[in-house]
Design a protein around this nucleic acid. Structure first.
Length: 124
RNA sequence: AGAGUUCACCAGACAAUCGUCGCUGGCAUUAGCCAGGGGAGGAAAGUCCGGGCUCCAUAGGAUAGGGUGCCAGGUAACGCCUGGGGGGCGAAAGCCUACGGAAAGUGCAGCAGAGAGCAGACCGCCUAAGCUCAGCAAUGAGCCGGUAAGGGUGAAAGGGUGCGGUAAGAGCGCACCGCGUGUGUGGUAACACAUCACGGCAUGGUAAACCCCACUCGGAGCAAGACCAAAUAGGAAUCCUUUAAGGUGUGAUCCGCACUGGAUUCGGGUAGGUCGCUUGAGGCCUGUGGCGACGCAGGUCCUAGAUGAAUGAUUGUCCACGACAGAACCCGGCUUAUCGGUGAGCUCUCAUU
């Protein structure tokens, strides 16, 4: 398997997966337009899931666009990320951002996540 | 050339790299790997109508309730489309139109105005008939009245114009126009027309107010529904009841139909996977019937199918610098959003010949 691929096993697939992250979120990255929740898993890699509600991003086109950009970024960065399950929630205004802005925002968020996670999982 | 109008079509292009979801083939056969080829829209949207499909009985009867509303046709069906008629707008092409019934009933109508619906004397006009008074008389004044021509109010004042008529007036009479009814003619019909007959006109508006009439509609939805594994289970306690009621399916109600002892409490559990899922009232071409919507026949093509949810990102080049916007069972419409571009038909104006 290529290290930049995005197969099914790196996504959160069931309601149960999501519930677990919400209930046991030990990491929280907050931004004006974005909220990232994460909790450690023991799969040996990270997984990601998206919660973009109609309330926060009104048009389906924008929901798709933003999710694709973030997913693309995750695909390229996943080797740097710790072994955690990540849920990305949209906040108001995320749908109005330009592609380049979204790229910047998500890259900044990844590095914050890595920083925060390091001391907690140093034993791994 | 310009202005207008109708119809149809397109929705940045190309390349590279890295990804993603089906399909096909190969290697593997437990996840994977490689190659090929495919992967959002004209509105995918709003969910406003109509169907298919699925389950409820094969959807049956009655009531309630909803919808539609000029006529004819098209269609699986429609509130859609086509053609026609009436009315309105426009110079025209063309566009708009809930456009059945107000002499079955009920209701409603601000302000102004004398009067607003089995009409009405405010101003005005009249004083013929009758009465009173004055006067010889003509006549004048008053009373009783008459009058819908004119003014004024209003969105609307109970046909219009002209002549006759009269005290002044009035469909009071007549002519023409309009209206209604009948008849005839044309048209499938809506409706139109008339050297026709009758009626002096008796019928104001509002039915997206109730209502009446005609036609029409069973309910719920792919989280429908089916299957697999697990499981609704199995279990415990208490009470009621013995063959008819009750309960459930079952929907707004009743009937009918089907199934079934019932009620309460305790305890326990799932939001896995497969199918449904894309070949369809399908697209394109040709012929043919029809004014047309559309039908018929033949040929040809297969063109998204996700499910925490694919169709993307980055870079480069070019140009008219890219609008609105993302499938979720599938179709037919309607409505709304939309940068710009292309083609065709028609109307008008100007110029040239």
């Amino acid at each position: 398997m290529n290290e930049f691929s995005y197969p099914r096993r790196v996504r959160l697939l069931t309601g149960g997966d999501f519930k677990q992250v919400f209930n046991r979120a030990s990491l929280k990255i907050s931004d004006q337009h974005l909220l990232i929740l994460a909790c450690p898993n023991d799969l040996g890699h990270s997984r990601v899931g998206f919660v973009f509600s109609k309330k926060n991003i009104r048009l389906a086109v924008n929901r798709n666009r933003v999710r694709r950009i973030i997913r693309e970024s995750f695909r390229l960065e996943q080797q740097q990320l710790p072994n955690v399950d990540i849920v990305i929630l949209a906040r108001k205004g995320l749908g109005d951002m330009e592609n380049k802005q979204v790229h910047k925002l998500i890259e900044r968020s990844w590095s914050r996540l890595i920083k925060k996670a390091k001391p907690k999982f140093q034993s791994k």
